[in-house]
Design a protein around this nucleic acid. Structure first.
Lengths: 220, 220
DNA sequence: TACGGATGTAAGAAGTTCTAACACAAGTTA
DNA sequence: TAACTTGTGTTAGAACTTCTTACATCCGTA
């Protein structure tokens, strides 16, 4: 793990560029992330940055990778720290961690769950990174009360296949369905909130979010 | 409403520009919509298009306006055509119309519900246009079975205020909550599906969508 | 028919990403 | 220590972008 002098400097430079990119992302959105502008703020010329990132998309991919990792750590923390507590509380804790992360860094949340970048194709490792969050969710939900789902059929099979392929082991399809379903519900609220769609409606999205968490604990 | 020859020609030109913009949107995403490229494909020079649209953002706003209007018409159609049928069926029909619209034009759906444009602020009339869809939803849900919601408190008040301010009249807060809640759930599925987030999971999002529609008919 | 506004042009400023060619410094090896 | 390699920066420039300005021309309407 020992890095040479040069490697350390290189990582330092990449880090600085990414930090500035995140600021631009927050201020101007994804379109506003400019290689040239980042370089200028670092005190170097534009083309110099191409020594550190293959191109603009490569830099953005790095941002996405970091975001997935960051989110995974946040929810995994919540899952670990609530270990042993009642299942329902754990689900609440997970929901809270997820929401806090999203609301605290809306632009990064949108980078993951918003409109996909034009010709962007996620590298395999980011898919794996993304799965960590879902995996933590499944873990928390396993012990929670599982609602009696009416139709255990095609969807169930597909979900079990998916979980197996991701090394999740043999999980009850009902848990998987609940996980995916719950996740889309939480995302539904967060996505609209972070995009400002609730703005003109003038109510507190946190209450809606809470209602959703409670409804899925009540068993759908 | 009679238009002079010139006005007709003007509308024709604007329409052509918007059609090409939509193609670019579908192929290259929002970033790929280029005033210059549109002009080139129309056989005129770039600056000429500035006679028809104040700037690029103005053109995009027009696209958003059209999309809201189009979506509203789609769901209003579904609501009208199912008038008189059992409430549950009507909710299903609404859900189907909403989904069909989204899946049929993913890029336009993302234009409305995806990542908001950088410095973009929605003009008031688009907000009103957006509300038409929600209004149709509320209408369909009014007759459907209303789930017993546990907490009728702050959220209820806020929702009632909102409905009143939008000229929705006096609506049962429970219906409003169900409407907003249901909408966010449907959006949760559609948003992830249209963004391709379900891709690597290899299951049919339509089944998940259906499950969500059914769950909210079952009363949460 | 003659006028005036609507529609187009070319030129250019200020950006963008990204490549190519070159200079220099810093680390590695003979 | 000297020589070589590699990493890091530079400037120049191509090919784009949005958008403004100034000028020409067409065409509908009065």
């Amino acid at each position: 793990m020992t890095m040479t002098r040069r490697e350390r400097y290189r990582e330092e430079t990449r880090g600085e560029a990414k930090r500035i990119a995140l600021e631009q992302l927050a201020e101007l959105g994804v379109e506003g992330v400019s290689v040239n502008a980042i370089a200028k703020r670092m005190g170097i010329t534009g083309p110099a940055l191409y020594r550190y990132f293959k191109n603009r998309e490569d830099l953005l991919t790095e941002l996405i990778r970091d975001a997935w990792r960051d989110l995974a750590e946040a929810v995994e923390d919540a899952a670990e720290q609530s270990a042993g507590r009642p299942p329902d509380e754990r689900v609440h804790e997970f929901g809270r961690a997820f929401r806090d992360w999203a609301i605290g860094r809306p632009h990064r949340y949108l980078l993951l769950f918003g409109t996909p970048l034009p010709g962007y194709h996620a590298p395999p490792d980011t898919v794996a990174l993304a799965h960590r969050t879902m995996s933590a969710f499944i873990g928390v939900l396993t012990a929670a009360r599982t609602a009696g789902t009416t139709d255990r059929s095609t969807l169930d099979e597909q979900l079990v296949d998916w979980a197996r392929s991701r090394g999740e082991g043999e999980v009850d399809p009902a848990v998987l369905l609940t996980a995916v379903r719950a996740f889309t519900r939480l995302h539904g609220v967060l996505s609209l909130e972070v995009s400002g769609q609730f703005g003109p409606m003038g109510f507190d999205p946190a209450l809606l979010y809470r209602a959703e968490v409670e409804s899925l604990l009540a068993g759908d």
